[in-house]
C-alpha cells in the first residue's frame, strides 16, 4: 500500500556490477524511506554506494534485487521507456558539474525540462526566467554558462531542477565544486526553491559544512545504510 507521506520507499535494494570474471555487489539489502516535504542527505565516504543508490531512486539504474517506489510509482515494475517518461515528469536533477548546455542561455538551460516535455522554447524560457528571477538570477537570464560563476551556474541548475514542478529533486554533490560561502548560498537557495510540502529533496554529499540544511541524514558505509537521523531543534536524533 502506497504511503502518500513517503516520496521514496526502498526495500531490500541490492545492486551488483560485473567486474572481471566475477561480480561485485555495491549495495546490500538497503531499506530507506524518504518523506515528502523534507530535505534528506545521503552521506558517507567515497565509494560507499551513494551515487548508485540515487541513480536507482531516480530511475536511471535498476536494482539487481528489491523494490523502489518513488512518488507513488513502482519504478522496478516500469519498462525503460516508462522510466524515461517518469524521470521527465517527476524528477529534477542538480549535478556536481552543473551540466549546463554551453550554447544555451541561463533561461534556455533552465527551460530544458519543459522543452523536453513538448513546450515551445520561447514559452518555456519565460517560465524559467521567472524562477531564475526568484532565486536572484534575474540579471543573468541571457548569459551563457561561460559568462557565469560556478555558484551562478549551480543556481541555474537548481532552476532547471524545479521548473517543471517535479515531486522529487535529486542533487549529486551540489556544493562540491564551490567554495564554502557559495556552497552555503546555493544550499539556502536549493532549500527555498526546491522544498515543498509535496516534494522531497535528496542531496548526496560528503560536505559536512552543509549538514545543517538537512531535515534527515542517512549515513552510508560499504553499501549499507548505517544510520538515519532526523533534525529536531538543531540536534540530529538517530531513528534507524
Amino acid at each position: 500500500m502506497t504511503d502518500p507521506s513517503m516520496a521514496v520507499r526502498c526495500r531490500g535494494i541490492t545492486k551488483s556490477f560485473p567486474a572481471g570474471d566475477g561480480i561485485v555487489e555495491v549495495l546490500h539489502a538497503i531499506d530507506l524511506d524518504i518523506p515528502a516535504g523534507e530535505l534528506t542527505m545521503l552521506v558517507g565516504p567515497s565509494g560507499c554506494g551513494k551515487t548508485t543508490l540515487i541513480s536507482i531512486i531516480a530511475g536511471i539504474l535498476g536494482p539487481t534485487h528489491g523494490t523502489v517506489e518513488a512518488c507513488g510509482v513502482p519504478l522496478t515494475k516500469l519498462r525503460d521507456s516508462e522510466k524515461v517518461a517518469f524521470r521527465r515528469k517527476a524528477i529534477g536533477f542538480v549535478f556536481q558539474q552543473y551540466n549546463l548546455l554551453p550554447a544555451l542561455t541561463a533561461a534556455e538551460n533552465a527551460a530544458i525540462p519543459l522543452v523536453a516535455a513538448g513546450m515551445p522554447m520561447a514559452k518555456a524560457a519565460q517560465q524559467s526566467a521567472a524562477i531564475l528571477d526568484r532565486i536572484g538570477m534575474g540579471k543573468h537570464i541571457d548569459k551563457l554558462p561561460s559568462q557565469l560563476s560556478g555558484g551562478q551556474q549551480q543556481r541555474v541548475a537548481i532552476a532547471r531542477a524545479v521548473v517543471h514542478a517535479p515531486n522529487l529533486v535529486v542533487c549529486d554533490e551540489p556544493t562540491a565544486a564551490l567554495d564554502a560561502e557559495t556552497g552555503q548560498t546555493v544550499m539556502t537557495i536549493l532549500k527555498e526553491a526546491a522544498l515543498a510540502a509535496d516534494r522531497a529533496v535528496i542531496v548526496v554529499t560528503h560536505d559536512n559544512r552543509i549538514y545543517h540544511f538537512a531535515d534527515r541524514i542517512a549515513a552510508m558505509e560499504d553499501g549499507r545504510i548505517r544510520s538515519v537521523r532526523t533534525a529536531t531543534a538543531g540536534q540530529f536524533l538517530e531513528v534507524a
Binding site: 536511471i60 524515461v84 524521470r87 521527465r88 536533477f93 558539474q97 551540466n99 554551453p102 525540462p113 523536453a116
Partner: peptide, 16 residues
Amino acid sequence: LRQFGSLKAMGVSNMT
C-alpha cells in the same frame, strides 16, 4: 556526450 547524458537523465528519450 556529458550534455547528452544529462538530457537522457532528465528524461529525454533515445529517439529524441
